[in-house]
């Protein structure tokens, strides 16, 4: 009797999860399937599989739009921003974690306070600031904003992690006459790799996906990022759904592939990132 009740309950739970999985996956499946269809096919039979795999939409996206350019811009801006966040926050975190100096806790407090301010709401002065520096509508301006946004939590994570590394390693290297730079670069930082991965994922995903800052700061079509480029794209091909679905599929592809490979790191990075 009890077993039967248990089986029934588990069956109900599996059913609930199955329905949820379909709701999450089916829209993405339709998106991908539609990218191989012609417009007529999408409108007449939206629910069926494509009758033949046409790559016409793909060719159109590749040749008639600025899609490749947007993609390259997003890659460049994300890589540059994440690299600078890692570099700057590791250096600062290293100073706070490994040396004792008078203003150390004040400096850490300053960085931590940055985690509480939503930079989006300071967009007006930020825009004026970048305009004064001649950095509106440039890669550098956008990258600097992302770096500023990423540094507070990155310093927090790096400081916390670097503090846990044992003193002995550092001391013995110092006895051997290694310079401070060498101790940091060749001995301590290689050990910080797990923290660097977390920081990289936590920052790469929101920067890659960001729409707000490019919308305000970038106006030249050649500098636009992928999410921003999609709005241009959708404006141009309003009625050509085959091309639209192809564009969305291609835009979703890079991060989806990366997510499938690194799903564990993505999930822990993003949930911890927001929870911190």
């Amino acid at each position: 009797m009890r077993d039967r009740g248990e089986t029934f309950r588990n069956g109900a739970i599996q059913l609930l999860l199955a329905v949820n999985a379909v709701i999450m996956i089916y829209p993405l499946f339709v998106m991908v399937a539609s990218s191989f269809k012609t417009n007529a096919e999408i409108f007449s039979s939206p629910l069926s599989l494509p009758t033949h795999f046409s790559t016409a939409n793909l060719e159109k996206v590749w040749t008639e739009t600025n899609f490749v350019r947007y993609l390259a811009n997003s890659v460049g801006i994300t890589v540059a921003s994440v690299a600078l966040i890692l570099l700057f926050s590791t250096l600062a975190g290293y100073a706070i974690a490994r040396y004792q100096f008078r203003l150390s806790s004040l400096v850490l407090m300053f960085f931590l306070s940055g985690m509480t301010v939503p930079l989006k709401l300071a967009i007006i002065p930020l825009f004026i600031q970048l305009d004064t520096l001649g950095l509106v509508d440039s890669y550098l301006g956008l990258v600097l904003v992302y770096v500023a946004m990423g540094i507070p939590s990155a310093v927090f994570i790096m400081t916390g992690f670097l503090r846990t590394l044992p003193r002995e390693l550092e001391e013995s290297a110092r006895m051997d006459g290694a310079s401070e730079l060498r101790i940091m670069w060749s001995i301590m930082l290689p050990l910080a790799r797990p923290a660097l991965v977390i920081v990289a994922i936590q920052n790469a995903v929101p920067i890659w996906n960001d729409f707000f800052f490019p919308l305000v700061l970038i106006t030249s079509d050649n500098l636009k990022t992928l999410p921003q480029g999609l709005t241009v794209f959708v404006g141009e091909f309003t009625t050509d759904w085959g091309v639209l679905f192809t564009g969305l599929t291609l835009a979703a592809l890079p991060i989806t592939l990366l997510y499938i490979v690194l799903s564990k790191q993505f999930i822990s990075g993003i949930t911890q990132g927001a929870v911190k």
């Binding site: 999410p227 999609l230 979703a252």
Partner: peptide, 10 residues
């Protein structure tokens, strides 16, 4: 969690 990693624009 898959949709979470996609851009809100997509």
């Amino acid at each position: 969690f898959l949709p979470v990693v996609l851009s809100a624009v997509i």
